[in-house]
Simulated assay, not measured.
Amino acid sequence: MSQIAQIASYAGTPRGGITLVLTAEDVSVEEFCSSHCAFHGSDQSAGTTFIWVGNSESQCAGQCAWPFHKPLYGPQLPELIPPNGYVGIEGMIINLASMLAGTVSNPFGNGYFQGNQEAPMEACTACPGVYGPGAYPGYAGQLLTDSTTGASYNANGAYGRKYLLPAFFDPTMATCSTLN
């Protein structure tokens, strides 16, 4: 994990910028799968932040690419069809969105979070597994479905692309807020 920060420092990110470090499916990173699927960090002296996201396709899809892969434990509902057709990439998109929310709202560990600073619940980590209204453990919630592919999504991107993005904690409503 310490090498991730070192790799990010080579990018020459300008002050206020974010460096993304994405690893291939055959790259092992300490604690990947066992405690997290991605993380964000910072170099306060340089005023930069970084995000690391692991590829969960071959290493821990049930943990880091759910709901597009069967979970390791809990309810075993059928997995959803990924909008772009690749379980590992969809897991990376979900985890990247979570880390972007944490980086923007708590870039240096002293911004917005709930609870203890040593184990903060950030904007997305406060809403694990919530993607649509009515979500509960093992059920991602009510989502949109592509009529051609059957893929589940809640966000439309450029060029007709579809994505499944996690809910964010809304402090004004004290609840997890979804896109649909």
Rank of each mutant, 00 (worst) to 15 (best):
S2Q: 07
Q3Y: 10
A5S: 14
Q6H: 10
A8Y: 11
S9E: 03
R15E: 12
G16Q: 03
T19S: 11
T19W: 05
V21N: 09
T23L: 03
D26W: 09
S28F: 12
S28W: 11
V29C: 02
C33Y: 04
S34Y: 12
S34N: 15
S35V: 14
F39Q: 04
H40V: 00
G41H: 02
Q44T: 06
S45T: 15
S45Y: 09
S45F: 13
W52G: 01
V53S: 04
G54M: 02
G54I: 03
S56V: 05
S56G: 03
S58E: 15
Q59L: 13
Q59S: 11
C60T: 03
W66R: 09
P67N: 08
P67S: 07
F68C: 06
F68D: 08
P71E: 13
P71H: 05
L72I: 09
L72R: 13
Q76C: 02
P78V: 02
E79D: 11
E79V: 03
L80Y: 04
I81N: 14
G85S: 02
G85C: 07
V87S: 10
V87T: 15
I89Q: 14
I94N: 00
L96M: 15
M99Y: 02
L100S: 10
A101I: 05
T103C: 06
V104S: 00
S105N: 10
S105A: 12
N106T: 04
P107I: 04
N110V: 09
Y112L: 07
Y112N: 11
Q114D: 11
Q114L: 15
G115S: 10
G115Y: 04
E122Y: 00
A123Q: 10
T125H: 08
A126I: 03
A126L: 07
G134L: 10
Y136V: 01
P137R: 03
G138F: 05
Y139L: 00
Y139W: 02
L143M: 04
T145Q: 15
D146M: 08
D146Q: 07
T148Y: 09
T149E: 10
G150I: 10
G150H: 12
S152P: 01
S152C: 04
Y159G: 01
R161F: 13
K162N: 12
L165F: 13
A167K: 06
F168V: 12
P171Q: 08
T172M: 13
M173Q: 15
A174Y: 12
T178N: 01
N180L: 12
N180T: 06
